[in-house]
Simulated scan of single mutants.
Amino acid sequence: MIFTNLKDSLQNESLSKEIKKCIEFTNKNKIEEYEAGVYEVPGTDMKMNVGHYTTKAESECFWETHLKYIDVQVMLKGEEYIAFNNVHNLKKIKTDEKNDLIEHEGDELFRVLMKEGDVLILYPEDAHMPGVKVNEPISVKKVVFKIKAEKI
């Protein structure tokens, strides 16, 4: 897991070429104006999932990991907690290979507060529970870029 911000040019310069493309694309485009959905990132083999949703209580969220993709999550509007643990500390309960999604159960190791402009990079072993409300449920807009793990 790597945590940074869209404006943190010093740290972002040390990231892989593919991750830097995600940050550059976000900085150069008004993704917050996109409708929710899945889009191709022009000039790459990456996809991005644009989400508009309401945060929830932790009891309504679930743990997830991915087999083939690295997530580059960028908070565009709003804030949420993302709970975190290593996949080896959790129990696998469901696998959906078609959608590259594995659901888990277990305890939180720690959580990260995502605010506007924050970037969270999650690798396949990084179990995460997104969408957890901070105080009250609020509407958020977030983009999740999907990079093939073998590209990094």
Rank of each mutant, 00 (worst) to 15 (best):
M1W: 08
M1Y: 10
I2H: 07
F3R: 14
F3A: 09
L6R: 03
S9L: 04
E13S: 12
S14E: 07
S16A: 09
S16V: 02
I19A: 13
I19L: 10
K21P: 01
F25A: 07
T26V: 04
T26G: 00
T26Q: 01
E32Q: 05
E33C: 00
E35Y: 00
G37A: 00
E40L: 01
P42N: 09
D45I: 13
D45S: 12
M46L: 05
N49H: 07
N49W: 01
N49F: 07
H52I: 11
T54D: 09
T54Y: 13
K56W: 10
E60R: 14
W63L: 10
E64Y: 09
E64H: 06
H66T: 05
H66K: 07
K68D: 08
K68V: 05
M75P: 02
M75I: 04
F84V: 14
V87E: 15
N89D: 15
L90G: 12
K91Y: 10
I93P: 13
I93M: 13
L101E: 05
E103M: 14
L109R: 15
M114C: 09
M114P: 04
M114D: 02
M114G: 06
K115C: 12
L120W: 01
L122Q: 11
Y123I: 05
D126P: 06
H128W: 07
M129C: 15
P130A: 08
E136H: 13
P137R: 13
I138S: 04
K142T: 01
V144I: 08
I147Y: 08
